[in-house]
Computed example of a mutant assay.
Amino acid sequence: MADAPSLSIHLNDPADDDAFHAWHGVFAAASSHDRGPDAPVWPEPELSAELRTQRSSSTTEIYLVHGAAEADSAIGAITLTMPLSDNLHRVDLGLYVEPGSRRRGVGSAMLEFVRSRTRELDRRVIASEVFRPYRDEKAGEGSADAEITVPGIAFAEHHGFTSAIGDLRSECQLPLDPALVRTIADEARPFHEGYVFHSWSGDVPEAFVEQWALMEGLIETDAPTGDRDVEPEVTSAEDIREQEAIFVRQGRTSFAAIAVDSTGEIAAYTQLVHSSVEAMVYQWGTLVRDQHRGHRLGAAVKAAAAHQFLQAGLDARAIITYNAEENEHMLAINQRFGFRPVERIEEVELNLDASG
């Protein structure tokens, strides 16, 4: 067995732009190599604002990895994100190895560092994601999926990670057809009499921000969770305002819609986020509360947010969304808008108490 490589792993100073630039270089090279040229890879300005901003509800550590000779280019990059208000047993891991430095034990040595750091933080679950090409089983391509060797999945399995839930990345090519959006809204309307809809662009109105925060916290566990070792999030209005401030620095614009019941409670919500840097739109959370399902509120709020986006006239190539493969109802709504799956994501977890 080959000896573990000698690595130099340094915590980035949040104020060090050069260090983050080097980190992003490894992240981008690894992500494009693993997922292909069409996969969304966050540009440096956007990811910098996301990862280097101190938040109330979480903290992120960014590490840059060199070989024994630190003067050489970086060969690895790590992010560890730790929730501070809930899920105190978890660490969310991003681990990236520069493609030319693989199959030398670099990733394994980096993961050993992550294990040690997770123990230091008194946490027990390391959560991450691995990606595989999408194969349409209904089109007779299901067997091909099993034949593909996916390095990230093989690495995770080798080191004791288990699959927690499978997701699909789907894309809807733009521009949206306004007539289709109106049709979807019209089809849903007879089913949700008694609900009032609100939609907007930009920040969440003050009148709704507390309830919006509640919805943001619930989506982590009210949506399908598979076998993830996760608890409901504690999200506050302060968290929402912090995220909105990050949007400003990223050049992003939010388009949102809610359905409110007769008591004034938010029954359903959704959010689209436009990136001016990427010319891309991301479909963020959509949730219908359990007691309000069956009224086609999911389709209705999605149509309302889509209408807000269309009114803005912003340029974008596609809308990207992620859904659990088992969430057939939401996948069906998305397909109605024109979304098609393009990638599979495996959410994996390593329980250090179980693995030793």
Rank of each mutant, 00 (worst) to 15 (best):
F161Y: 13
F161N: 00
T162G: 15
T162C: 12
T162P: 03
T162V: 15
T162N: 09
T162S: 14
G166R: 12
G166I: 06
G166M: 13
G166F: 12
G166H: 12
G166L: 12
D167S: 11
D167I: 08
L168N: 12
L168C: 10
E171L: 14
E171A: 11
Q173W: 10
Q173F: 10
L174F: 09
L174M: 13
P175G: 04
L176D: 07
P178C: 05
A179C: 04
L180R: 00
L180P: 00
V181H: 06
R182L: 05
R182T: 06
T183A: 14
I184Q: 05
D186I: 01
D186M: 05
D186F: 05
D186V: 04
E187S: 09
A188R: 00
F191N: 08
G194N: 05
G194R: 10
Y195T: 10
Y195Q: 06
F197S: 04
H198V: 06
W200A: 06
S201T: 05
G202N: 12
G202R: 13
D203M: 10
D203P: 11
V204P: 07
V204I: 10
V204M: 07
V204F: 06
P205T: 00
E206D: 15
A207S: 12
F208L: 15
F208C: 07
V209H: 02
E210D: 15
E210F: 07
W212F: 13
A213G: 05
A213H: 00
L214C: 08
M215N: 01
G217W: 00
G217H: 02
L218C: 07
E220N: 11
T221R: 02
T221C: 03
T221E: 08
D222Y: 10
P224S: 03
T225F: 09
T225W: 08
T225C: 11
R228M: 08
R228K: 02
R228S: 06
D229N: 10
E231H: 09
E231Y: 06
P232M: 03
V234Q: 11
S236H: 03
A237W: 06
E238V: 13
E238N: 04
D239F: 00
I240D: 13
I240E: 14
R241S: 01
E244Y: 08
A245H: 14
A245I: 11
A245D: 14
I246Q: 12
F247G: 09
